[in-house]
Amino acid sequence: MKKLLIVDDAAFMRVSIRNMLQNQDIEIVGEAANGLIAVSMYKELRPDVVTMDITMPEMSGIEALKLIKAFDPQAKVIMVSSMGQEGMVKQAIISGAKTFIVKPFKEELLHKTISKVLGV
């Protein structure tokens, strides 16, 4: 089973994503509440895919993405963004984010995004 790491400072979003993936063939190996934790969890857990919030305390999603990509150039990171963050999404793409998903999103879109990123 493929492994997923959820990164978001809002517990609500983490649980939302977890719920949406309940009946999917994917294992959520961890949840991180900021970029710093995300990077160390990535190194430890080596997930196949990461959903990464952008605006977070301690370390933003962009910074975390850069560090994860520096550690593992093959890392598959999906940015979780929302309207008004175009500039940051662009930075994320340049820094190697696989793709991004725009809040609010529906269950189906998340499934599709993850399976495409995983190349299933």
């Binding site: 609500f12 939302s16 977070m56 929302s82 809040k103 609010p104």
Partner: peptide, 17 residues
């Protein structure tokens, strides 16, 4: 901090419609 809080609330409440 306030920017981040508003951003989070924007996102969550949009998800909840």
């Amino acid at each position: 901090e306030i920017f981040r809080i508003m951003h989070t609330i924007k996102g969550s409440s949009a998800m909840m419609l």
